[in-house]
Computed example of a mutant assay.
Amino acid sequence: MNLRKINIPPILKNKYILTLVVFGVWMLFFDQNNLWDKRKLNSRINQLEKQKHHYQVEIEQNERKLSEIQESPESLEKFAREEYLMKKNDEDIFVIIEP
């Protein structure tokens, strides 16, 4: 088959355009930093940012609880009763579990 008889558009005969197209395809699909991997990494970054925000809020809440507990013995007693089911010697504890 003779290549001169095949009708190729003149823009594809230009070696610079052809090189640019091959380079673009290589970068989009075959390079280690291709679009698919970048998209997955951006998704993972967004997920980790949400987790980071969640944990920062949780840390702030725990710091507030800690400072409240350290400030007054009444709140320390309340915390011990609620979280660890501690009691005084003359008390009974009833645990109610809601369905």
Results as ranks from 00 to 15, higher is better:
residue 22 V to K: 13
residue 49 E to F: 03
residue 22 V to C: 11
residue 40 K to M: 06
residue 23 F to P: 01
residue 73 P to Y: 09
residue 97 I to Q: 09
residue 72 S to I: 03
residue 40 K to E: 09
residue 10 P to S: 04
residue 44 R to S: 09
residue 35 L to V: 12
residue 13 K to C: 09
residue 13 K to V: 02
residue 12 L to N: 00
residue 98 E to Y: 04
residue 61 Q to C: 03
residue 92 D to A: 14
residue 5 K to V: 10
residue 66 L to G: 02
residue 84 Y to V: 08
residue 36 W to Y: 06
residue 67 S to P: 00
residue 8 I to E: 05
residue 70 Q to M: 13
residue 34 N to A: 05
residue 12 L to R: 03
residue 90 D to N: 09
residue 28 L to F: 07
residue 55 Y to A: 03
residue 19 T to H: 06
residue 42 N to V: 00
residue 22 V to L: 11
residue 36 W to Q: 13
residue 4 R to S: 14
residue 87 K to F: 06
residue 43 S to P: 00
residue 28 L to V: 08
residue 98 E to F: 10
residue 57 V to L: 07
residue 77 E to W: 12
residue 51 Q to R: 10
residue 66 L to S: 10
residue 65 K to R: 07
residue 50 K to N: 11
residue 80 A to N: 10
residue 20 L to A: 13
residue 70 Q to W: 05
residue 97 I to G: 03
residue 54 H to C: 04
residue 76 L to T: 02
residue 20 L to W: 01
residue 2 N to Y: 05
residue 91 E to D: 15
residue 97 I to N: 10
residue 23 F to Y: 00
residue 16 Y to Q: 13
residue 2 N to K: 01
residue 41 L to Q: 15
residue 92 D to H: 05
residue 64 R to G: 00
residue 9 P to H: 05
residue 33 N to S: 02
residue 1 M to I: 05
residue 80 A to P: 00
residue 54 H to Q: 14
residue 8 I to W: 07
residue 81 R to V: 08
residue 76 L to D: 06
residue 89 N to S: 15
residue 65 K to M: 09
residue 64 R to H: 09
residue 48 L to G: 02
residue 7 N to P: 03
residue 61 Q to M: 09
residue 25 V to M: 05
residue 11 I to A: 02
residue 16 Y to C: 11
residue 89 N to H: 04
residue 50 K to D: 12
residue 7 N to T: 04
residue 95 V to H: 00
residue 65 K to H: 06
residue 3 L to A: 04
residue 39 R to A: 11
residue 10 P to T: 11
residue 40 K to G: 03
residue 31 D to L: 00
residue 7 N to D: 14
residue 82 E to Q: 14
residue 46 N to I: 02
residue 17 I to R: 02
residue 56 Q to I: 08
residue 77 E to H: 06
residue 71 E to S: 14
residue 88 K to V: 00
residue 52 K to Q: 13
